[in-house]
């Protein structure tokens, strides 16, 4: 394996890793603000991608019962798809927080699992089992860096992921709403006493995470086939990325975790065996958890009890 080939693998790793990082960020934002582990996070990505595909190109829906051919411009399709998925995120908020009112972690997890199953089923009804693909965002020959090849879509994926992370950083650091969200993750009761509407912040966290997930799904859609099941593994790996470095509560940890996971996965697939590509994430996770039971960055006492 030459250095060039390894460089090529690194590019592929960063590309997929930035998607994992975006999904991981969604997990962290919801978990920090509401304490809920939302296992429907991967389904946001799947829905976003499939909706964007439906808006831009001719798609047969409902078991080929009818065909939609909206042919919207790409940007408009992306915005519409993201907004729709944000709406789904709000729905998840209503179910998990407003309707259920339980504080048992396991019950909340099971509710989000139920939502994920239902969303997957809805996608199966609407789009069937066919895999779909979004056309690349821009036409043109790939870029050569040495002998390594960087496709235009790779640049789109990495560029938009990092742009989103920067925006999110500015939002959390510089805006009043962002600061209120952070206050909620430090101490919800204190935030409420300071006049922050905590339930609005929780809603915002869900909507924000749904948007992040949807965009992640949309930008990766030209690179892989998207089907109703695509969200499961994206979600699981995003979860691992969120937990492995930052212990599910650190945004920077989620980003580093996502990138690291993507790179490791592609390197292992390229250098060892592609059959075990999907296992890498979990082998790394278990190895890390055995050394440091609460993620690498997280210091202090582990969270008390299982909360079951």
């Amino acid at each position: 394996m030459t250095p060039d080939q390894i460089f090529q693998l690194l590019i592929a790793g960063v590309t997929i890793g930035s998607i994992y990082a975006l999904i991981a960020l969604g997990f962290v934002v919801i978990h920090n603000v509401t304490g809920v582990i939302n296992l429907a996070q991967g389904e946001f990505a799947m829905l976003g991608a499939l909706l964007a595909i439906t808006f831009t190109s001719e798609t047969a829906l409902f078991n080929r019962a009818f065909t939609v051919n909206l042919n919207l411009p790409l940007l408009l399709a992306i915005v519409l798809a993201t907004l729709l998925v944000m709406g789904v995120g709000a729905l998840v908020y209503v179910i998990v927080i407003r309707l259920s009112r339980t504080d048992s972690v396991i019950v909340q997890i099971i509710i989000t699992i139920g939502i994920a199953i239902a969303l997957r089923g809805v996608a199966l009804i609407v789009w069937g089992t066919d895999p779909y693909r979004l056309p690349s965002f821009s036409e043109g020959p790939p870029l050569q860096i040495g002998t390594a090849v960087l496709t235009r879509q790779d640049i789109w994926v990495i560029g938009s992921a990092f742009a989103l992370m920067l925006l999110l950083y500015l939002f959390f650091q510089r805006t009043m709403i962002g600061k209120s969200l952070r206050a909620c993750s430090v101490n919800r009761t204190a935030a409420r006493l300071m006049g922050i509407n905590v339930s609005h912040m929780m809603l915002l966290a869900f909507v924000l995470s749904a948007g992040l997930g949807a965009l992640a799904g949309i930008v990766i859609a030209p690179k892989t086939f998207m089907g109703y099941e695509a969200g499961t593994y994206l979600g699981l790996k995003g979860f691992v990325a969120a937990i492995v470095i930052g212990g599910l509560s650190d945004e920077r940890g989620a980003i580093v975790g996502g990138l690291m996971l993507g790179i490791l996965e592609i390197l292992a697939a390229g250098l060892i065996s592609s059959g075990y590509k999907d296992a890498i994430a979990f082998i790394v996770l278990i190895a890390v958890l055995l050394v440091q039971t609460t993620g690498i960055l997280r210091r202090g006492t582990p969270s008390q009890g299982a909360g079951v």
Binding site: I111, G114, I117, A118, R120, G121, I125
Partner: peptide
């Protein structure tokens, strides 16, 4: 699948 998910929720 949808029904199972919804009933579970």
């Amino acid at each position: 699948i949808v029904a199972f998910g919804v009933i579970l929720v």
